[in-house]
Design a protein around this nucleic acid. Sequence first.
DNA 1: TTGATATATTCCTATATAGGAATATACTTA
DNA 2: TAAGTATATTCCTATATAGGAATATATCAA
Lengths: 115, 115
Amino acid sequence: MARTSTTFDTFNAIAEPKRRVLIETMIGKELTVNQIVELLGWKQPMVSKHLSVLKQVGIVSQRKVGRYRVYRVNANHLKPVQEWANQFEQYWSNSLDYLDDYLKEIKAREKSDEQ
Amino acid sequence: MARTSTTFDTFNAIAEPKRRVLIETMIGKELTVNQIVELLGWKQPMVSKHLSVLKQVGIVSQRKVGRYRVYRVNANHLKPVQEWANQFEQYWSNSLDYLDDYLKEIKAREKSDEQ
DNA sequence: TTGATATATTCCTATATAGGAATATACTTA
DNA sequence: TAAGTATATTCCTATATAGGAATATATCAA
């Protein structure tokens, strides 16, 4: 069996690093495909293909303006990602715990160096 | 070129729905592989394999206890996911905007039905 | 030591990309 | 209508899984 399809859900769509960059670049703007091409310096078909995946899961939507296609991010669709991560927030370390972890790590490293 | 490796980063590791379930199941606990097998009803090799991916990106860590391997979630590693999503929070619709979107959607649907 | 238990790994296969190149499609303007 | 611009799609290939089955490895217990 292959991996879950990139168009299966938001999590799979944003797994691709380039698509995250695309989203970061587009957020809050309305951009034409070629504007994105210029901003990112990617090949036009590559931009169109990644936009297509993002569109299929609803992360971006598109509007026709003459021969241009204007794309924008539907930020709402990223909410589930934040919400999914939120449920683990209570288990995150605070900065002091971080320090503690860091010290433990150093000790562990010293110990393994001794051997 | 194939897709980004599942072990490339946290985003790719959690793209697989089963691995998200695994994380949700394990959060806040220390669980043995077979305990997870029982909780989820998956095959043991499947659990071990998914744990292996999560371990490689640091989302879980493992401790040996006799012939058992005790796994736990490193919740810290899910922080980047929340943080990534956070940067788009200001662009999320509030409930009124949602209503607006909803009404627009209904109108659009009526229009396409007419044709 | 031997059998049993716990977990990891290997082998196999179907499948889904991502990127590159080429090309098709759509719209505009002279 | 023809040329030009903007964007999407198709074809190709290398690659990386996910799951199933079988098996290897590690540890415990009698």
